[in-house]
Amino acid sequence: MNHRCLPHDVLLLCARWTDPEHFPGDRAVTGWDWRSHYERRLEATMAQWIGKAILGWQFEVRRPMAFAPVAHLVGTAREDLDHIDSIARLCRELDAVPDPNYRPSPDPGGPGTGHVCLGVCLENGIALALKLLVQRSTDHMHAPDEFLAALHDLLRLVQAVRPFNAAEPLCDAWDLLFRDGHAAIFTPDDVRALRHQFVLALYPLAHTGVQHERIAQLVKRLAEDIPVLDRATAADVRATYDMIFGPGDAATPDDELPVHSAPALPVGFPAAWSHVFAAGARQ
Protein backbone atom coordinates (compact mmCIF):
# COMPACT_ATOMS: atom_id res chain seq x y z
CA MET A 1 0.00 0.00 0.00
CA ASN A 2 1.37 3.40 -0.99
CA HIS A 3 0.95 6.01 1.75
CA ARG A 4 -0.02 9.46 0.50
CA CYS A 5 -0.49 12.81 2.15
CA LEU A 6 -4.25 13.16 2.74
CA PRO A 7 -6.19 16.31 3.75
CA HIS A 8 -6.22 15.34 7.42
CA ASP A 9 -2.42 14.90 7.29
CA VAL A 10 -2.13 18.46 5.98
CA LEU A 11 -4.29 19.74 8.82
CA LEU A 12 -2.23 17.83 11.41
CA LEU A 13 1.00 19.22 10.01
CA CYS A 14 -0.36 22.75 9.87
CA ALA A 15 -1.49 22.44 13.47
CA ARG A 16 2.08 21.52 14.38
CA TRP A 17 3.45 24.48 12.41
CA THR A 18 0.92 27.09 13.61
CA ASP A 19 2.50 30.03 15.38
CA PRO A 20 0.82 33.41 16.00
CA GLU A 21 4.19 35.10 15.43
CA HIS A 22 4.01 34.10 11.78
CA PHE A 23 1.92 37.23 11.21
CA PRO A 24 3.55 40.65 11.53
CA GLY A 25 2.54 42.59 14.62
CA ASP A 26 2.71 45.85 12.69
CA ARG A 27 -0.62 46.13 10.90
CA ALA A 28 0.91 48.70 8.54
CA VAL A 29 2.96 45.98 6.84
CA THR A 30 1.31 45.19 3.53
CA GLY A 31 1.55 43.08 0.42
CA TRP A 32 4.70 41.11 -0.25
CA ASP A 33 6.40 42.20 2.99
CA TRP A 34 3.52 40.70 4.95
CA ARG A 35 3.69 37.45 3.01
CA SER A 36 7.51 37.28 3.14
CA HIS A 37 7.44 37.67 6.92
CA TYR A 38 4.90 34.87 7.18
CA GLU A 39 6.93 32.56 4.93
CA ARG A 40 10.17 33.19 6.84
CA ARG A 41 8.48 32.47 10.17
CA LEU A 42 6.79 29.34 8.79
CA GLU A 43 10.10 28.09 7.38
CA ALA A 44 11.75 28.64 10.77
CA THR A 45 9.02 26.62 12.50
CA MET A 46 9.30 23.84 9.92
CA ALA A 47 13.09 23.87 10.35
CA GLN A 48 12.75 23.28 14.08
CA TRP A 49 10.36 20.41 13.41
CA ILE A 50 12.41 18.72 10.69
CA GLY A 51 15.69 19.16 12.59
CA LYS A 52 14.35 17.58 15.78
CA ALA A 53 12.69 14.81 13.77
CA ILE A 54 15.84 13.92 11.80
CA LEU A 55 17.91 13.89 14.99
CA GLY A 56 15.30 11.81 16.81
CA TRP A 57 15.26 9.32 13.94
CA GLN A 58 18.86 8.39 14.74
CA PHE A 59 17.81 6.95 18.13
CA GLU A 60 15.99 3.62 17.94
CA VAL A 61 13.68 4.35 20.88
CA ARG A 62 12.61 7.72 19.46
CA ARG A 63 12.22 6.66 15.84
CA PRO A 64 8.54 5.56 15.88
CA MET A 65 7.40 9.07 16.87
CA ALA A 66 10.23 11.16 15.43
CA PHE A 67 8.02 12.55 12.68
CA ALA A 68 4.81 12.93 14.64
CA PRO A 69 2.10 13.72 13.64
CA VAL A 70 2.73 12.02 10.25
CA ALA A 71 4.92 9.09 11.30
CA HIS A 72 2.88 6.78 9.05
CA LEU A 73 4.15 8.76 6.05
CA VAL A 74 7.83 8.80 6.96
CA GLY A 75 9.14 5.28 6.81
CA THR A 76 7.99 4.11 10.21
CA ALA A 77 5.13 1.96 8.93
CA ARG A 78 7.06 0.49 6.00
CA GLU A 79 10.58 -0.74 6.59
CA ASP A 80 11.38 -0.68 2.87
CA LEU A 81 10.62 3.06 2.60
CA ASP A 82 13.65 5.30 3.17
CA HIS A 83 12.90 8.21 5.48
CA ILE A 84 14.79 10.64 3.22
CA ASP A 85 12.70 9.60 0.22
CA SER A 86 9.61 9.88 2.39
CA ILE A 87 10.32 13.50 3.35
CA ALA A 88 11.21 14.39 -0.25
CA ARG A 89 7.91 12.86 -1.37
CA LEU A 90 6.08 14.79 1.33
CA CYS A 91 7.61 18.01 -0.02
CA ARG A 92 6.46 17.15 -3.53
CA GLU A 93 2.92 16.35 -2.39
CA LEU A 94 2.71 19.61 -0.44
CA ASP A 95 4.22 21.64 -3.27
CA ALA A 96 0.91 23.04 -4.55
CA VAL A 97 -0.99 22.83 -1.25
CA PRO A 98 -1.78 26.28 0.17
CA ASP A 99 -1.30 26.92 3.88
CA PRO A 100 -4.83 27.13 5.34
CA ASN A 101 -3.57 29.35 8.16
CA TYR A 102 -2.28 32.12 5.90
CA ARG A 103 -4.32 35.29 5.69
CA PRO A 104 -3.37 38.08 3.27
CA SER A 105 -2.53 41.51 4.59
CA PRO A 106 -5.55 43.18 6.21
CA ASP A 107 -4.72 46.44 4.46
CA PRO A 108 -7.33 46.73 1.66
CA GLY A 109 -4.90 48.85 -0.34
CA GLY A 110 -2.18 46.22 -0.33
CA PRO A 111 -1.39 44.20 -3.47
CA GLY A 112 -2.77 40.70 -3.76
CA THR A 113 -0.19 38.07 -2.81
CA GLY A 114 -1.92 34.78 -3.57
CA HIS A 115 -1.24 31.95 -1.16
CA VAL A 116 1.70 30.36 0.66
CA CYS A 117 2.76 26.91 -0.63
CA LEU A 118 3.56 24.46 2.14
CA GLY A 119 5.95 22.36 0.05
CA VAL A 120 8.19 25.29 -0.90
CA CYS A 121 8.42 26.44 2.71
CA LEU A 122 9.19 22.90 3.88
CA GLU A 123 12.02 22.58 1.35
CA ASN A 124 13.56 25.86 2.54
CA GLY A 125 13.00 24.75 6.13
CA ILE A 126 15.13 21.65 5.47
CA ALA A 127 18.12 23.81 4.53
CA LEU A 128 17.56 26.05 7.54
CA ALA A 129 17.31 22.99 9.81
CA LEU A 130 20.87 22.06 8.86
CA LYS A 131 22.17 25.45 9.97
CA LEU A 132 20.16 25.39 13.22
CA LEU A 133 21.39 21.89 14.05
CA VAL A 134 25.02 22.89 13.48
CA GLN A 135 24.56 25.99 15.64
CA ARG A 136 23.62 23.74 18.56
CA SER A 137 26.33 21.17 17.99
CA THR A 138 27.64 21.53 21.55
CA ASP A 139 24.26 20.31 22.81
CA HIS A 140 24.86 16.95 21.13
CA MET A 141 28.44 16.17 22.18
CA HIS A 142 27.12 13.24 24.23
CA ALA A 143 25.87 11.59 21.00
CA PRO A 144 28.33 12.56 18.24
CA ASP A 145 27.53 9.53 16.05
CA GLU A 146 23.80 10.26 16.01
CA PHE A 147 24.43 13.98 15.48
CA LEU A 148 26.75 13.23 12.55
CA ALA A 149 24.16 10.89 11.02
CA ALA A 150 21.53 13.64 11.34
CA LEU A 151 23.78 16.11 9.48
CA HIS A 152 24.33 13.58 6.70
CA ASP A 153 20.57 12.99 6.45
CA LEU A 154 19.83 16.71 6.19
CA LEU A 155 22.47 17.11 3.49
CA ARG A 156 20.92 14.19 1.60
CA LEU A 157 17.56 15.94 1.89
CA VAL A 158 19.04 19.14 0.48
CA GLN A 159 20.29 17.10 -2.48
CA ALA A 160 16.88 15.48 -2.92
CA VAL A 161 14.65 18.57 -2.76
CA ARG A 162 17.01 21.36 -3.92
CA PRO A 163 15.55 24.20 -1.83
CA PHE A 164 15.36 27.56 -3.57
CA ASN A 165 16.75 29.40 -0.54
CA ALA A 166 19.39 26.85 0.50
CA ALA A 167 22.49 28.91 -0.34
CA GLU A 168 22.74 31.07 2.78
CA PRO A 169 21.92 28.35 5.36
CA LEU A 170 24.28 25.88 3.66
CA CYS A 171 27.16 28.35 3.55
CA ASP A 172 26.49 29.39 7.15
CA ALA A 173 26.56 25.75 8.24
CA TRP A 174 29.82 25.21 6.34
CA ASP A 175 31.45 28.19 8.06
CA LEU A 176 30.30 27.05 11.49
CA LEU A 177 31.56 23.52 10.97
CA PHE A 178 34.83 24.00 9.14
CA ARG A 179 35.89 27.58 9.88
CA ASP A 180 34.56 28.12 13.42
CA GLY A 181 35.51 24.63 14.61
CA HIS A 182 32.14 23.00 15.35
CA ALA A 183 33.35 19.88 13.52
CA ALA A 184 36.00 19.33 16.20
CA ILE A 185 33.71 16.80 17.92
CA PHE A 186 34.18 14.43 14.93
CA THR A 187 37.12 12.28 13.90
CA PRO A 188 39.27 13.37 10.90
CA ASP A 189 37.69 10.63 8.77
CA ASP A 190 34.21 11.80 9.75
CA VAL A 191 35.15 15.39 8.87
CA ARG A 192 36.37 14.33 5.42
CA ALA A 193 33.14 12.41 4.78
CA LEU A 194 31.06 15.37 5.94
CA ARG A 195 32.95 17.79 3.69
CA HIS A 196 32.31 15.46 0.75
CA GLN A 197 28.61 15.31 1.59
CA PHE A 198 28.53 19.12 1.58
CA VAL A 199 30.07 19.15 -1.89
CA LEU A 200 27.42 16.71 -3.10
CA ALA A 201 24.75 19.04 -1.68
CA LEU A 202 26.28 22.06 -3.41
CA TYR A 203 26.28 20.41 -6.83
CA PRO A 204 22.50 20.18 -7.33
CA LEU A 205 22.16 23.78 -6.12
CA ALA A 206 24.23 24.76 -9.14
CA HIS A 207 21.63 22.95 -11.28
CA THR A 208 18.86 25.19 -9.98
CA GLY A 209 20.36 28.14 -11.83
CA VAL A 210 20.24 30.38 -8.76
CA GLN A 211 23.19 32.72 -9.25
CA HIS A 212 24.57 32.97 -5.73
CA GLU A 213 27.99 34.52 -5.28
CA ARG A 214 28.57 33.11 -1.81
CA ILE A 215 28.28 29.52 -3.08
CA ALA A 216 30.54 30.41 -5.99
CA GLN A 217 33.21 31.74 -3.64
CA LEU A 218 32.94 28.66 -1.40
CA VAL A 219 33.35 26.33 -4.38
CA LYS A 220 36.27 28.42 -5.62
CA ARG A 221 38.04 27.99 -2.26
CA LEU A 222 37.36 24.26 -2.35
CA ALA A 223 38.81 24.03 -5.85
CA GLU A 224 42.08 25.46 -4.56
CA ASP A 225 42.39 22.38 -2.31
CA ILE A 226 41.86 19.85 -5.12
CA PRO A 227 45.50 18.62 -5.04
CA VAL A 228 45.18 17.57 -1.37
CA LEU A 229 41.65 16.16 -1.46
CA ASP A 230 40.86 12.48 -1.79
CA ARG A 231 40.08 11.42 -5.34
CA ALA A 232 36.29 11.10 -4.96
CA THR A 233 35.88 14.47 -3.24
CA ALA A 234 38.23 16.18 -5.71
CA ALA A 235 36.21 14.83 -8.64
CA ASP A 236 32.96 16.19 -7.22
CA VAL A 237 34.56 19.54 -6.34
CA ARG A 238 35.80 19.85 -9.92
CA ALA A 239 32.37 18.93 -11.32
CA THR A 240 30.70 21.54 -9.09
CA TYR A 241 33.29 24.16 -10.04
CA ASP A 242 32.69 23.47 -13.73
CA MET A 243 28.94 23.81 -13.22
CA ILE A 244 29.40 27.33 -11.85
CA PHE A 245 32.37 28.74 -13.74
CA GLY A 246 32.38 26.58 -16.85
CA PRO A 247 34.73 23.74 -17.86
CA GLY A 248 38.37 24.32 -18.63
CA ASP A 249 38.87 27.26 -16.28
CA ALA A 250 42.56 27.90 -15.61
CA ALA A 251 41.99 28.62 -11.91
CA THR A 252 42.06 24.92 -11.01
CA PRO A 253 44.58 22.21 -11.97
CA ASP A 254 43.78 20.32 -15.14
CA ASP A 255 44.35 16.90 -13.64
CA GLU A 256 41.69 15.08 -15.67
CA LEU A 257 39.83 13.92 -12.60
CA PRO A 258 36.91 11.60 -13.38
CA VAL A 259 33.49 13.08 -12.66
CA HIS A 260 31.44 9.91 -12.96
CA SER A 261 30.16 10.36 -9.39
CA ALA A 262 28.48 13.67 -10.24
CA PRO A 263 24.84 13.74 -11.40
CA ALA A 264 24.20 14.28 -15.09
CA LEU A 265 23.27 17.76 -16.27
CA PRO A 266 19.58 17.93 -17.21
CA VAL A 267 18.83 18.33 -20.91
CA GLY A 268 18.48 21.94 -21.94
CA PHE A 269 19.99 23.38 -18.74
CA PRO A 270 22.34 26.41 -19.04
CA ALA A 271 25.96 25.27 -19.21
CA ALA A 272 27.49 27.57 -16.59
CA TRP A 273 27.34 30.76 -14.58
CA SER A 274 30.69 32.08 -15.84
CA HIS A 275 29.12 35.22 -17.34
CA VAL A 276 27.73 36.16 -13.93
CA PHE A 277 31.04 36.10 -12.12
CA ALA A 278 33.23 37.32 -14.96
CA ALA A 279 35.27 40.48 -14.42
CA GLY A 280 33.12 43.56 -14.91
CA ALA A 281 29.88 41.59 -14.85
CA ARG A 282 28.77 43.32 -11.65
CA GLN A 283 28.49 47.04 -11.15
Score class of each variant (00 low, 15 high):
His3Met: 02
Arg4Lys: 14
His8Phe: 02
Cys14Val: 13
Trp17Asn: 04
Asp19Leu: 04
Pro20Ile: 03
Pro24Tyr: 03
Asp26Met: 00
Ala28Trp: 02
Ala28Asp: 12
Val29Phe: 00
Thr30Met: 01
Gly31Thr: 05
Ser36Gly: 06
His37Phe: 00
Tyr38Ile: 05
Leu42Thr: 07
Glu43Phe: 04
Thr45Trp: 00
Ala47Gln: 03
Gln48Asn: 09
Gln48Pro: 03
Trp49Met: 03
Lys52Glu: 15
Ile54Thr: 14
Val61Tyr: 14
Arg62Gln: 14
Arg63Trp: 06
Met65Glu: 15
Ala71Gln: 15
Val74Arg: 13
Glu79Ile: 02
Leu81Ala: 07
Leu81Phe: 10
Leu81Gln: 13
Asp82Phe: 01
His83Ser: 09
Ile84Trp: 01
Ile87Gly: 03
Ala88Pro: 09
Arg89Asn: 15
Cys91Thr: 10
Val97Met: 05
Tyr102Arg: 04
Pro104Leu: 01
Pro106Tyr: 01
Pro106Ser: 02
Pro108Gln: 11
Pro111Gly: 09
Thr113Cys: 02
Cys117Thr: 08
Gly119Phe: 07
Asn124Ala: 11
Ala127Asp: 07
Ala129Tyr: 10
Leu130Phe: 14
Leu130Asp: 05
Leu133Thr: 13
Gln135Gly: 11
Ser137Ile: 11
Thr138Pro: 01
Met141Val: 11
Glu146Asp: 11
Ala150Ile: 03
His152Ile: 12
Leu157Ile: 12
Leu157Ser: 13
Arg162Ile: 15
Pro163Ala: 04
Asn165Trp: 04
Glu168Ile: 09
Glu168Pro: 06
Asp172Met: 07
Ala173Phe: 13
Trp174Thr: 10
Phe178Ser: 06
Arg179Thr: 11
Asp180Tyr: 08
His182Asp: 04
Phe186Tyr: 12
Phe186Arg: 13
Pro188Val: 05
Pro188Glu: 08
Asp190Glu: 15
Arg192Ala: 14
Gln197Arg: 12
Phe198Glu: 06
Phe198Thr: 05
Val199Gly: 05
Leu200Gly: 06
Leu202Gln: 13
Leu202Asn: 08
Leu205Val: 14
Ile215Gln: 13
Gln217Glu: 12
Leu218Val: 07
Val219Pro: 00
Glu224His: 07
Ile226Glu: 00
Leu229Gln: 05
Asp230Lys: 02
Ala234Lys: 10
Tyr241Pro: 02
Asp242Pro: 08
Pro247His: 11
Asp254Arg: 14
His260Ile: 00
Ser261Met: 01
Ala264Ile: 06
Val267Tyr: 02
Ala272Ser: 15
Phe277Ser: 14
Ala278Asn: 12
Ala279Gly: 13
Ala279Lys: 10
Arg282Gly: 05
